[in-house]
Amino acid sequence: MNIFRLSGDMTHLMSVIVLLLKIHTIKSCAGISLKTQELYALVFATRYLDIFTDFVSVYNTIMKLIFLATSFSIVWYMRHHKIVRRSYDKEQDTFRHLFLILPCLILALVVNEKFTFKEVMWTFSLYVEAVAILPQLVLLQRTKNIDNLTGQYVFLLGAYRALYILNWIYRYLTEKHFVHWITWISGLVQTLLYADFFYYYINSWKNNVRLQLPA
Protein backbone atom coordinates (compact mmCIF):
# COMPACT_ATOMS: atom_id res chain seq x y z
CA MET A 1 0.00 0.00 0.00
CA ASN A 2 1.33 3.44 -0.93
CA ILE A 3 1.03 6.74 0.93
CA PHE A 4 -1.66 8.11 -1.44
CA ARG A 5 -3.89 5.11 -0.97
CA LEU A 6 -3.50 5.19 2.82
CA SER A 7 -4.12 8.96 2.96
CA GLY A 8 -7.15 8.46 0.72
CA ASP A 9 -8.60 5.80 2.99
CA MET A 10 -7.90 7.95 6.04
CA THR A 11 -9.63 11.04 4.60
CA HIS A 12 -12.55 8.79 3.67
CA LEU A 13 -12.65 7.51 7.24
CA MET A 14 -12.38 11.07 8.59
CA SER A 15 -15.31 12.20 6.44
CA VAL A 16 -17.46 9.49 8.02
CA ILE A 17 -16.24 10.43 11.51
CA VAL A 18 -17.06 14.11 10.89
CA LEU A 19 -20.56 13.17 9.80
CA LEU A 20 -21.10 10.85 12.78
CA LEU A 21 -19.78 13.58 15.07
CA LYS A 22 -22.40 15.96 13.73
CA ILE A 23 -25.13 13.38 14.20
CA HIS A 24 -24.06 12.24 17.66
CA THR A 25 -22.97 15.46 19.34
CA ILE A 26 -25.21 18.08 17.72
CA LYS A 27 -27.99 15.53 17.10
CA SER A 28 -28.48 17.12 13.72
CA CYS A 29 -28.26 16.05 10.10
CA ALA A 30 -29.19 19.47 8.69
CA GLY A 31 -27.67 20.03 5.28
CA ILE A 32 -26.91 16.32 4.79
CA SER A 33 -28.58 14.56 1.89
CA LEU A 34 -30.27 11.30 2.85
CA LYS A 35 -30.33 10.40 -0.85
CA THR A 36 -26.55 10.54 -1.02
CA GLN A 37 -26.23 8.53 2.21
CA GLU A 38 -28.59 5.85 0.89
CA LEU A 39 -26.60 5.69 -2.34
CA TYR A 40 -23.39 5.15 -0.34
CA ALA A 41 -25.02 2.34 1.64
CA LEU A 42 -25.99 0.77 -1.69
CA VAL A 43 -22.45 1.28 -3.00
CA PHE A 44 -20.85 -0.60 -0.10
CA ALA A 45 -23.50 -3.32 0.01
CA THR A 46 -22.95 -4.14 -3.68
CA ARG A 47 -19.17 -3.67 -3.72
CA TYR A 48 -18.26 -5.73 -0.68
CA LEU A 49 -20.13 -8.89 -1.65
CA ASP A 50 -16.76 -10.62 -1.52
CA ILE A 51 -16.09 -9.60 2.07
CA PHE A 52 -16.36 -13.12 3.52
CA THR A 53 -15.21 -15.06 0.45
CA ASP A 54 -12.07 -13.28 -0.79
CA PHE A 55 -9.58 -12.37 1.89
CA VAL A 56 -7.19 -9.54 1.02
CA SER A 57 -5.87 -8.34 4.39
CA VAL A 58 -7.05 -7.66 7.93
CA TYR A 59 -6.90 -3.93 7.15
CA ASN A 60 -9.09 -4.45 4.10
CA THR A 61 -11.72 -6.49 5.93
CA ILE A 62 -11.89 -4.10 8.89
CA MET A 63 -12.24 -1.03 6.64
CA LYS A 64 -14.98 -2.74 4.63
CA LEU A 65 -16.87 -3.56 7.82
CA ILE A 66 -16.48 0.03 9.04
CA PHE A 67 -17.81 1.53 5.80
CA LEU A 68 -20.72 -0.92 5.71
CA ALA A 69 -21.67 -0.37 9.35
CA THR A 70 -21.30 3.42 9.33
CA SER A 71 -23.14 3.98 6.04
CA PHE A 72 -26.13 1.93 7.16
CA SER A 73 -26.18 3.46 10.63
CA ILE A 74 -26.08 6.99 9.20
CA VAL A 75 -29.10 6.15 7.04
CA TRP A 76 -30.83 4.67 10.09
CA TYR A 77 -30.16 7.79 12.18
CA MET A 78 -31.45 10.13 9.48
CA ARG A 79 -34.60 8.11 8.90
CA HIS A 80 -35.50 6.81 12.35
CA HIS A 81 -33.71 8.54 15.22
CA LYS A 82 -36.39 10.58 16.96
CA ILE A 83 -34.30 13.76 17.33
CA VAL A 84 -31.88 13.53 14.39
CA ARG A 85 -34.57 12.88 11.79
CA ARG A 86 -36.34 16.15 12.66
CA SER A 87 -33.38 18.17 11.36
CA TYR A 88 -33.43 16.47 7.97
CA ASP A 89 -34.19 18.92 5.13
CA LYS A 90 -36.69 16.68 3.42
CA GLU A 91 -38.26 19.39 1.25
CA GLN A 92 -34.87 20.47 -0.12
CA ASP A 93 -33.47 16.98 -0.68
CA THR A 94 -35.53 16.16 -3.74
CA PHE A 95 -33.08 14.36 -6.02
CA ARG A 96 -34.47 11.07 -7.37
CA HIS A 97 -32.30 8.02 -6.68
CA LEU A 98 -33.74 6.07 -9.55
CA PHE A 99 -32.47 8.53 -12.15
CA LEU A 100 -28.98 7.67 -10.95
CA ILE A 101 -29.39 3.99 -10.06
CA LEU A 102 -31.10 2.80 -13.24
CA PRO A 103 -28.57 4.19 -15.76
CA CYS A 104 -25.75 2.86 -13.56
CA LEU A 105 -27.31 -0.61 -13.54
CA ILE A 106 -27.76 -0.64 -17.31
CA LEU A 107 -24.22 0.63 -17.84
CA ALA A 108 -22.84 -2.03 -15.46
CA LEU A 109 -24.68 -4.74 -17.40
CA VAL A 110 -23.16 -3.51 -20.65
CA VAL A 111 -19.72 -2.23 -19.64
CA ASN A 112 -17.95 -4.61 -17.24
CA GLU A 113 -14.82 -6.72 -17.10
CA LYS A 114 -16.62 -10.03 -16.65
CA PHE A 115 -20.30 -10.88 -16.96
CA THR A 116 -20.84 -12.52 -13.58
CA PHE A 117 -23.18 -11.44 -10.79
CA LYS A 118 -20.39 -10.36 -8.44
CA GLU A 119 -18.47 -8.54 -11.14
CA VAL A 120 -21.53 -6.68 -12.46
CA MET A 121 -22.49 -5.67 -8.90
CA TRP A 122 -18.95 -4.50 -8.26
CA THR A 123 -18.95 -2.42 -11.46
CA PHE A 124 -22.42 -1.07 -10.59
CA SER A 125 -21.07 0.06 -7.22
CA LEU A 126 -18.29 2.01 -8.96
CA TYR A 127 -20.77 3.78 -11.24
CA VAL A 128 -23.14 4.60 -8.39
CA GLU A 129 -20.30 5.92 -6.24
CA ALA A 130 -19.24 8.19 -9.09
CA VAL A 131 -22.57 10.05 -8.98
CA ALA A 132 -23.64 9.47 -5.36
CA ILE A 133 -22.48 12.94 -4.28
CA LEU A 134 -24.83 14.73 -6.71
CA PRO A 135 -27.88 14.92 -4.36
CA GLN A 136 -25.55 16.28 -1.65
CA LEU A 137 -24.13 18.93 -3.97
CA VAL A 138 -27.63 20.00 -5.03
CA LEU A 139 -28.66 20.25 -1.37
CA LEU A 140 -25.55 22.32 -0.55
CA GLN A 141 -26.43 24.72 -3.31
CA ARG A 142 -29.89 25.19 -1.82
CA THR A 143 -28.61 25.63 1.73
CA LYS A 144 -28.15 29.28 2.72
CA ASN A 145 -25.91 28.65 5.71
CA ILE A 146 -23.69 25.64 5.22
CA ASP A 147 -22.29 24.71 8.64
CA ASN A 148 -18.59 23.92 9.06
CA LEU A 149 -19.03 20.19 9.65
CA THR A 150 -21.08 19.73 6.47
CA GLY A 151 -18.51 21.68 4.46
CA GLN A 152 -15.67 19.64 5.97
CA TYR A 153 -17.53 16.40 5.30
CA VAL A 154 -17.87 17.10 1.57
CA PHE A 155 -14.33 18.45 1.37
CA LEU A 156 -12.90 15.27 2.95
CA LEU A 157 -14.89 13.09 0.55
CA GLY A 158 -13.51 15.03 -2.40
CA ALA A 159 -9.97 14.82 -1.01
CA TYR A 160 -10.34 11.05 -0.67
CA ARG A 161 -11.21 10.76 -4.36
CA ALA A 162 -8.35 13.01 -5.46
CA LEU A 163 -5.89 10.93 -3.41
CA TYR A 164 -7.18 7.73 -5.00
CA ILE A 165 -6.29 9.14 -8.42
CA LEU A 166 -2.75 9.82 -7.24
CA ASN A 167 -2.71 6.26 -5.88
CA TRP A 168 -3.67 4.87 -9.30
CA ILE A 169 -0.99 6.91 -11.05
CA TYR A 170 1.54 5.63 -8.53
CA ARG A 171 0.41 2.02 -8.91
CA TYR A 172 0.39 2.29 -12.68
CA LEU A 173 4.00 3.45 -12.61
CA THR A 174 5.21 0.90 -10.05
CA GLU A 175 3.13 -2.24 -10.66
CA LYS A 176 3.03 -4.42 -13.74
CA HIS A 177 -0.40 -5.01 -15.29
CA PHE A 178 -2.11 -2.32 -13.25
CA VAL A 179 -4.63 -1.12 -15.84
CA HIS A 180 -8.21 -0.68 -14.71
CA TRP A 181 -10.12 1.52 -17.13
CA ILE A 182 -13.55 1.18 -15.52
CA THR A 183 -12.26 2.07 -12.06
CA TRP A 184 -10.18 4.95 -13.37
CA ILE A 185 -12.78 6.61 -15.58
CA SER A 186 -15.58 6.38 -13.02
CA GLY A 187 -13.16 7.61 -10.35
CA LEU A 188 -12.13 10.53 -12.51
CA VAL A 189 -15.75 11.48 -13.22
CA GLN A 190 -16.46 11.32 -9.50
CA THR A 191 -13.53 13.59 -8.65
CA LEU A 192 -14.43 16.12 -11.34
CA LEU A 193 -17.88 16.54 -9.77
CA TYR A 194 -16.15 18.05 -6.74
CA ALA A 195 -14.16 20.63 -8.75
CA ASP A 196 -16.76 23.37 -8.42
CA PHE A 197 -17.25 22.71 -4.71
CA PHE A 198 -13.49 22.74 -4.09
CA TYR A 199 -13.21 26.11 -5.78
CA TYR A 200 -15.77 27.73 -3.48
CA TYR A 201 -14.64 25.83 -0.40
CA ILE A 202 -11.00 26.95 -0.74
CA ASN A 203 -12.07 30.52 -1.53
CA SER A 204 -14.27 30.74 1.55
CA TRP A 205 -11.45 29.32 3.65
CA LYS A 206 -8.88 31.74 2.20
CA ASN A 207 -11.11 34.76 2.66
CA ASN A 208 -12.33 33.50 6.01
CA VAL A 209 -16.01 33.82 5.08
CA ARG A 210 -18.87 31.39 5.45
CA LEU A 211 -19.17 28.86 2.65
CA GLN A 212 -22.02 29.52 0.27
CA LEU A 213 -22.49 28.06 -3.20
CA PRO A 214 -24.00 30.22 -5.95
CA ALA A 215 -27.50 29.16 -6.96
Binding site: E119, W122, H180, T183
Partner: peptide
Amino acid sequence: EEQETSKDEL
Protein backbone atom coordinates in the same frame (compact mmCIF):
# COMPACT_ATOMS: atom_id res chain seq x y z
CA GLU B 1 -2.63 -15.35 -16.78
CA GLU B 2 -5.99 -13.89 -15.82
CA GLN B 3 -6.25 -10.21 -15.03
CA GLU B 4 -8.22 -9.59 -11.86
CA THR B 5 -9.84 -6.25 -11.10
CA SER B 6 -8.37 -4.18 -8.29
CA LYS B 7 -10.30 -5.76 -5.44
CA ASP B 8 -7.60 -4.87 -2.96
CA GLU B 9 -8.90 -1.31 -2.94
CA LEU B 10 -11.87 0.03 -1.04
